[in-house]
Nucleic acid binder design. Structure first.
Lengths: 221, 221
DNA sequence: TCAAACTCTCAGCAAAATCTAAGCATTTAT
DNA sequence: ATAAATGCTTAGATTTTGCTGAGAGTTTGA
């Protein structure tokens, strides 16, 4: 899957590129609007992620131009604004979805997945690991058929962990994926949330084996 | 690949130069900010490594100026600070990545590699040597399919050794690559860690041939 | 509007990792 | 063969890392 990111802020652009590549998408970045439009039309991208506010041209304009030039694949619009009016504008211009900054990387990922979802690809909305299950549609989490209620941060963290089972995730990894990209949180905050999750996920189920383990010096699994 | 290092601290600058040259990059050093900026624009470097704190000009300023002057290749920023705010500042100024001092040389190398990585170059994340394998993504080490748990120093040391197989590495080499550049560790410390590694890597596998051998008077292989 | 829930930081305790030092073992040089 | 040099090993002091309870600040919703 090839994705083009058109975003002038290098920090955001690189964060998106890095993260999506980790998910094994092929990502190209364009820091410039006109350049990006050229690339989108010249190459065959499965998706374009487009910043709304670009230094020279408006993202809306690019979006309209792409659609006029028969670009059919999904366009995901990024924006700093949060007005419903802007959202409508974006969607009217032909964007398929809309995400306001700052966003947590996992949010972006979810939308990318949704947009790229093809009929033949069965997208799992329920993540399972042992006797633990997490439903991304209903935000329900269960273990041995007992419902567990989580806050949204806890949910996001657990989702990220469950999507990367049997892999050690560093605190930096976790912060980059679960928190907003410009969030300034301490590694200790991750420790605290891991603690919360353990209290809810592992502690009440002493019969099942703990699912969250610490790899000292590296991160969590 | 030509790399320019702009760093006023001669000790650090030379360490970086030496290390990168050993990896067969062509390295030039500039001890002065303005001078460095001139060189970066005059010559065609594939990458610039830029100290954040320079005696006259701020590294941030140089970074911005380079981008304004259409310098498009990666910029890696070095800094003593550790706040995410500073990191954001650096990335906003157009840097592509960010490394806080003190760092181990291998860390720098990893980032340089990542930034210079071209789409067609496949970066190997799993190092293998005989029946031993080391996964840099998951931090897992296995021998004959048995998992081995290492501390982070042991892991870093093994990674360095495995990246330089069949080559004699002196203790000074090892200290320079695996420890922070300003770390003041005794050669004996390396001996101790080699001992730890042998206990975990070679000792439990008497059937396989030992992978860590001593070249008395020189170092390890 | 107020209370409850949520997010995040801080401080102190515990445990693990890191590093040094000292004595012992092995190799090298004389 | 023996002294000197180099490497190995163990024990423990020091430093780092992770966990937890308490609480400040913020958001949410009744």
């Amino acid at each position: 899957m090839r994705i083009l990111v058109v975003e002038d802020d290098r920090k955001i652009a690189n964060a998106i590129k890095k993260g999506l590549e980790q998910e094994s998408y092929a990502v190209d970045v364009s820091f410039d609007g006109m350049d990006g439009m050229g690339s989108a039309l010249a190459f065959d991208y499965d998706m374009v992620i487009l910043d709304r506010m670009l230094p020279e041209v408006d993202g809306i304009k690019i979006c309209e131009a792409l659609r006029k030039n028969k670009y059919k694949n999904p366009i995901l619009m990024l924006t700093a604004k949060d007005k419903i009016k802007d959202r409508v504008e974006g969607l009217d211009a032909g964007a398929d979805d809309y995400l306001t900054k700052p966003f947590a990387f996992e949010e972006l990922l979810a939308r990318v997945r949704a947009l790229l979802r093809r009929p033949h690809q069965i997208q799992e909305d329920i993540l399972r690991l042992g006797d633990l299950s997490l439903n991304r549609q209903t935000f329900e989490v269960e273990r041995t058929d007992k419902k567990i209620s989580l806050s949204s941060k806890e949910f996001a963290l657990l989702e990220y962990l469950m999507r990367n089972p049997n892999r050690i995730l560093t605190k930096d990894n976790i912060i980059a994926h679960v928190w907003d990209y410009d969030a300034d949180v301490l590694p200790n905050t991750v420790e605290v949330y891991i603690g919360y999750l353990r209290n809810k996920i592992d502690k009440p189920f002493p019969k099942s084996k703990p699912l969250i383990s610490t790899a000292r010096g590296f991160g969590y699994r």
